Computed example of a mutant assay.
Amino acid sequence: MREFGRIGLGPQATEALDDLNENTRRGLQRALVDGNILLQKLAQAGGDTKVVNNWFYGDKNWGRMAESGDFLGRASPQSYAGGIEHWVEMAAKLRSFADADGEILNGKNNYRIRFEKDQIPTARAFWSISVYDDKFNLAETDWDKYLVSDATENLVYGQDGSLEIYLQQDQPEQAHRANWIPLPKGDFNLFFRFYLPNQSMIDQTYVPPPVRKTAAN
């Protein structure tokens, strides 16, 4: 807070922004642009976190990152993944920007996420997979639907206990609609959340399946 105060920000500011010297004001204007670019790149790169099948785990100290001085790591998800971050014991999260082949997720394609029986997500509260646009907002589509979760009505499981999630712009055949998440035009990313997660998410041993490009369903 003392550092911020030196440039006219926060409760410890010693002078108003308008009274700062010209060089400092220009630096702050540049920081508004460069700072956001840096935070967005860090959000997309995942930071120094575990990556499994192109899903990024959050920091194991999620929600407490400032305690270790990782202010940059804290600022990025707070800017592009929600204003407040939960402790990992409350909510564990995975994020993906790329498919199984490492290609950027884009709504012009169709995708499928297949959970084998022993991969089915579990959480003491609930889990969900949501689609976000390239500005980190819930993706706007032609359909009033943004996610699939264990609370989705009529979710269909395979005879072998597997679960398949379908991601595409067009509405699929009736048998797949409960398991479908509509996609926006352009690039998008996925948020895989576990509320009151099990231990495998907290210690990051859970292996999520990749997002695979497919034909339409």
Rank of each mutant, 00 (worst) to 15 (best):
38 L>E: 09
39 L>T: 04
39 L>E: 06
39 L>F: 06
39 L>H: 04
40 Q>Y: 13
40 Q>M: 10
41 K>P: 03
42 L>W: 12
43 A>V: 07
43 A>I: 07
44 Q>I: 15
44 Q>M: 12
45 A>K: 10
45 A>Q: 13
46 G>M: 08
47 G>R: 06
47 G>E: 05
47 G>F: 10
48 D>I: 05
48 D>A: 07
48 D>G: 01
49 T>W: 09
49 T>G: 04
49 T>L: 02
49 T>V: 08
52 V>R: 01
52 V>F: 02
52 V>N: 00
53 N>G: 06
53 N>Y: 04
53 N>H: 10
53 N>M: 04
54 N>T: 02
54 N>D: 05
54 N>L: 02
56 F>Y: 15
57 Y>F: 15
58 G>T: 14
59 D>G: 02
62 W>C: 02
62 W>D: 05
65 M>W: 09
66 A>G: 15
66 A>L: 05
66 A>P: 05
66 A>C: 09
67 E>L: 12
67 E>A: 12
68 S>P: 08
68 S>D: 15
68 S>K: 14
69 G>D: 08
69 G>C: 09
69 G>M: 08
70 D>R: 10
71 F>W: 15
71 F>D: 03
71 F>T: 11
71 F>C: 06
72 L>N: 08
73 G>I: 03
74 R>K: 14
75 A>Y: 07
75 A>D: 13
75 A>S: 15
75 A>M: 13
76 S>N: 08
77 P>L: 03
77 P>K: 04
77 P>N: 05
77 P>M: 03
79 S>P: 05
79 S>Q: 09
83 G>D: 12
84 I>M: 09
84 I>W: 14
84 I>P: 03
84 I>Q: 14
86 H>W: 11
87 W>D: 13
87 W>F: 12
88 V>E: 05
88 V>T: 12
88 V>K: 14
89 E>D: 14
89 E>P: 02
89 E>M: 09
89 E>G: 05
89 E>A: 06
90 M>E: 10
90 M>N: 14
90 M>Q: 14
91 A>R: 05
91 A>D: 11
92 A>N: 04
92 A>I: 00
92 A>C: 07
94 L>S: 01
94 L>H: 03
95 R>F: 07
95 R>Y: 10
95 R>H: 12
95 R>N: 08
95 R>V: 03
96 S>N: 04
96 S>K: 00
96 S>V: 06
97 F>D: 03
98 A>I: 00
98 A>M: 05
99 D>L: 00
99 D>R: 02
100 A>I: 01
102 G>R: 08
102 G>W: 04
103 E>C: 00
103 E>T: 05
103 E>V: 02
105 L>T: 02
105 L>E: 01
106 N>S: 11
106 N>L: 03
106 N>Q: 07
107 G>M: 04
108 K>N: 15
108 K>H: 09
109 N>G: 02
109 N>K: 15
109 N>E: 12
109 N>M: 06
110 N>R: 04
110 N>I: 01
111 Y>E: 00
112 R>P: 01
112 R>H: 02
112 R>L: 12
113 I>W: 01
113 I>P: 00
114 R>L: 12
114 R>S: 11
114 R>D: 08
116 E>L: 07
116 E>C: 00
117 K>C: 04
117 K>R: 09
118 D>C: 00
